[in-house]
């Protein structure tokens, strides 16, 4: 199944991001169940990494907690294998170095074996994407690419063409985080330009953490990605209450 199938006409696909193993795998398992029960069209599952260049403090801290707890890539793949039959499609979100050390072909095989539907790697640019895209493609896994506000139109068109399943539209400059809201005017222009060159669904992320922000982008995109806000919603809570916090947050958002 292509990831494009998670986008339904007239409906905003909700794609939450959660860091695997923050603070432990059991908690993540409970959060994934809560997300599945509360309308997630797909789930981005973060693989913990110590030097996340595209992430702000919230996701960086979540990754650090998971690493401090000893969570490794294989633990994340085992979790995916356990839950994927009962969950919406799972998209692994990882930096390139852990994948590179695992071996591209080996990683693609392991991710497919676990049942992952997609892989997003924020520090693999269009120019460097091909080896991993081909390795994943050989196992039927798609690799959505990112378009940023600073991406020139001609380049955005080439990214959209190579992007697997959908196009991840970064809605503002900077890194992930609930702080600054999307910059709507440039985002609208970016979306309009992308619509002119691709039929692939467009999902917006970065800086979207409230219902008002979701509603602001709802008319122009096919999906919305929410990460830091969701992590903030449970990271102060006791482990057994994390899934409940997530359910409550998602309800407030949609």
């Amino acid at each position: 199944m292509s990831l494009s199938a998670i986008f339904k006409p007239g409906q905003l696909a909700f794609i939450p991001y959660v860091m695997a193993g923050d603070p432990d795998i059991a908690t993540t398992r409970a959060i994934l169940a809560a997300l599945a029960a509360n309308g997630a069209a797909a789930i981005e599952l973060g693989i913990p990494y110590g030097d996340p260049l595209a992430d702000g403090p919230t996701i960086a801290a979540a990754g650090a907690r998971a690493l401090a707890n000893g969570v490794k890539l294989n633990d994340v793949l085992s979790l995916v294998k356990d839950v994927h039959a009962k969950a919406p499609p799972i998209i692994l979100f990882t930096y390139y170095n852990p994948v590179y050390q695992f071996g591209l072909a080996e990683f693609a095989r392991a991710a497919a074996d676990a049942g992952a539907a997609g892989v997003i790697v924020p520090d693999v640019t269009l120019e460097e994407a091909e080896p991993l895209r081909l390795a994943l493609g050989a196992h039927g896994i798609e690799m959505p690419l990112l378009v940023a506000p600073s991406t020139p139109p001609e380049r955005a068109a080439r990214i959209a063409e190579q992007s697997g399943g959908f196009v991840y539209v970064v809605s503002r400059l900077g890194v992930t985080g609930a702080g600054e809201a999307p910059n709507l005017e440039p985002l609208r222009k970016q979306i309009a330009a992308l619509r002119a060159v691709t039929k692939k669904p467009l999902a917006a992320g970065f800086g979207i953490s409230t219902r008002a922000q979701v509603d602001a982008v709802r008319p122009i995109v096919d999906g919305v990605i929410v990460g830091s806000g969701l992590i903030d919603a449970y990271s102060g809570a006791r482990r057994e209450e994390a899934a409940g916090c997530v359910a409550k947050y998602v309800t407030s958002l949609l």
Binding site: A54, T125, E127, V147, S150
Partner: peptide
């Protein structure tokens, strides 16, 4: 042209920085 000395170098950054 892609910034490699042999097999080393390149450009592995978030897309937001590529234009810069």
């Amino acid at each position: 042209a892609r910034g490699y000395f042999g097999e080393f170098g390149g450009r592995f950054v978030p897309e937001v920085l590529v234009a810069a």
